[in-house]
Nucleic acid binder design. Structure first.
Lengths: 202, 202
DNA sequence: GGCGCATCTGACCAACCGGTCAATAGAGAC
DNA sequence: GTCTCTATTGACCGGTTGGTCAGATGCGCC
């Protein structure tokens, strides 16, 4: 059938969006498949035509949320390495915050990282974090080779610091938006601050 | 009855410890009261003699885990303000990591911080974070008055950065212990790095 | 022993869960 | 219209949950 593929994809995205809302509201364990189906406007049984299980749905969602599909620019050579790290962090922040009221789902997902080691969702999140750290590490090394980070001789550790700063800041904005002032604490501020600490000449 | 009070307290702590283990393993929504009771060596019904509900149990646990009862030294004047901030962060890290295999419960709890606004557990976590930020802010201001942080003119923002760094680093250590090298990325390293960024003369 | 009382128990309950599947609806071909 | 095949449904299932409560248990006291 010709209509099948586009139709299926539309339903698939429809379900992902509904899952985003319900997972964000109730958590992943707390959410019920029935609620997700209702939010998507389909019957509960239909969910299982697109996903093997609730956990698989969550896994697909995390991949969908954190795939940096539009970040080609990040890897281009238009920007200096350090500026690219900042752009990467800002892009991450923007994508998360653009979820608006559904953003807390991210907290639930990261909260899952730590459960049973063979947990599908946890493995997915952990892999994404590892990839992010590696991307930052590569950029940091290039910056180091250019002499832009004189105080930093361990790019792995530096990348870990920057990633932790980025994650912590986004987490803070999601969980406690009223903790910081009006404009709020931007990820760019926090990460570039950490870069200054690394010895960057910015 | 004279025995009541100490006995009750012992049971109470016994249940908190069991909850820590089970919540850490299964998450808060995922954990069952029966499992917690079994881990504590009591019948399920007994849990409700000490806590109104599972959520209340989680709330008490979060208060128990994050109450800085032994941090009196932090507020003494034996250390310089900036050193005290570092001591505070290290104390937090130590307390969390000392939970060992049960530590992931912390992630689950932070993951809860986005649920319904009137969620008891979420409010508790948020309040604790706000208190921590305030404590750091006060110390930062003192350091600023002493001229130790010349580049920092907004203590609230500075405290938010330091807190986010601390939280992000602890989170990273809990969720992805293999992401950083052998010794790992310490909270002291990350926070003092952020302080250097703030302009501290350390 | 026996009384009084706080503590504890575990069978029980209604509600809900993730997941299944026989039945139904609907779209395109002719 | 009608035949075919796929997409969709929602009643249904076994299992589990948080929470209750009537009764058992144990301890201090007389």
């Amino acid at each position: 059938m010709r209509l099948t593929s586009p139709k299926r994809e539309a339903r698939y995205r429809q379900l992902l969006q509904a899952a985003l809302k319900i997972f964000g509201r109730d958590g992943i364990d707390g959410a019920s498949v029935a609620d997700i189906a209702e939010a998507a406007g389909v019957a509960k049984g239909s969910v299982y035509l697109y996903f093997d299980s609730k956990e698989a749905l969550a896994g697909d969602l995390v991949r969908h949320l954190f795939t940096f599909e539009d970040d080609g620019a990040r890897l281009s050579d238009e920007l200096e390495p350090l500026a690219r790290i900042l752009a990467f962090c800002e892009s991450h922040e923007k994508r998360i915050l653009s979820l608006g009221d559904d953003a807390p789902v991210v907290l639930h997902m990261f909260g899952h990282v730590g459960k049973k080691a063979d947990d599908q969702l946890g493995r997915g999140v952990r892999q994404l974090m590892a990839e992010s750290r590696f991307a930052i590490q590569v950029l940091l090394r290039r910056a180091m080779d250019k002499g832009q980070v004189p105080g930093c001789d361990d790019c792995g550790r530096g990348a870990a610091i920057l990633l932790a700063t980025m994650m912590g800041t986004v987490h803070q904005k999601l969980a406690m938006p009223d903790l910081v002032g009006e404009g709020g604490l931007g990820v760019r501020d926090a990460v570039s601050n950490a870069m200054r600490g690394l010895g960057a000449l910015m």
